[in-house]
């Protein structure tokens, strides 16, 4: 089988495995690493991870389908996740979803033609005090209105910022310039 991740990622995985009393605990990180390099988690990657960690492939597949942050098919380059749970719901999350539907012309789970965007609604992101909000890739955008979200989408199209959390570098991307990464306090 072809090497499923880069040497660098492989090295990182070895480091992570050493952190735990049992290397199997590194499986969630391994999945993140694969997803980071391939954009999603394929069946082949699952088999590769299973071999790396001496697990049965279906055990790894269980994890990919149990946890919502793993994707078995590619999302858009910018995946917008609108929190829909109560506080965000009370404060207008639905308007954000409607806006995305209108702006991108796609349904949740679909990818825009240019491959740049996809969106879905997700459950509580722990940002209820700054509702409504969304997470684009791994970066939070809080206290939103459809207008504010429009501006963010515009700027993403222009700036193409890194909004991902990188397990490889153990770091969140630089984000959208001038945008706070958190408004919790």
């Amino acid at each position: 089988m072809s090497v499923a991740i880069s040497d660098e990622a492989q090295k990182r995985l070895e480091e992570i495995k050493k952190q735990y009393p049992d290397p199997k605990s590194a499986v969630m990180s391994a999945l993140y690493l694969v997803q980071e390099e391939h954009g999603h988690i394929s069946d082949e990657s699952i088999t590769w991870i299973a071999e790396e960690l001496d697990m049965s492939p279906v055990r790894v597949m269980e994890l990919v389908t149990f946890y919502t942050m793993y994707y078995r098919k590619a999302t858009g380059k910018y995946h917008v996740q609108v929190c829909r749970t109560l506080s965000c719901g009370l404060c207008g999350a639905r308007k954000l979803m409607d806006y995305l539907h209108e702006r991108l012309g796609i349904k949740p789970g679909e990818v825009s033609e240019d491959g740049l965007f996809s969106y879905e609604h997700v459950e509580c992101l722990g940002s209820c005090g700054t509702a409504p909000m969304c997470e684009i890739n791994d970066t939070y955008f809080e206290n939103l209105t459809p207008e504010k979200l429009a501006g963010i989408i515009d700027r993403i199209q222009e700036e193409k910022p890194d909004l991902h959390f990188s397990t490889l570098r153990d770091k969140l991307g630089e984000g959208l310039s001038g945008c706070s990464k958190s408004e919790v306090m």
Binding site: T47, P57, M61, T65
Partner: peptide
Amino acid sequence: GTGELGLLNRGDKNVIAVHPDK
């Protein structure tokens, strides 16, 4: 000890399955 079967997904969407390669 062959571990072919798993229970995928969660909640009432869960389903017994094998990995496509096994």
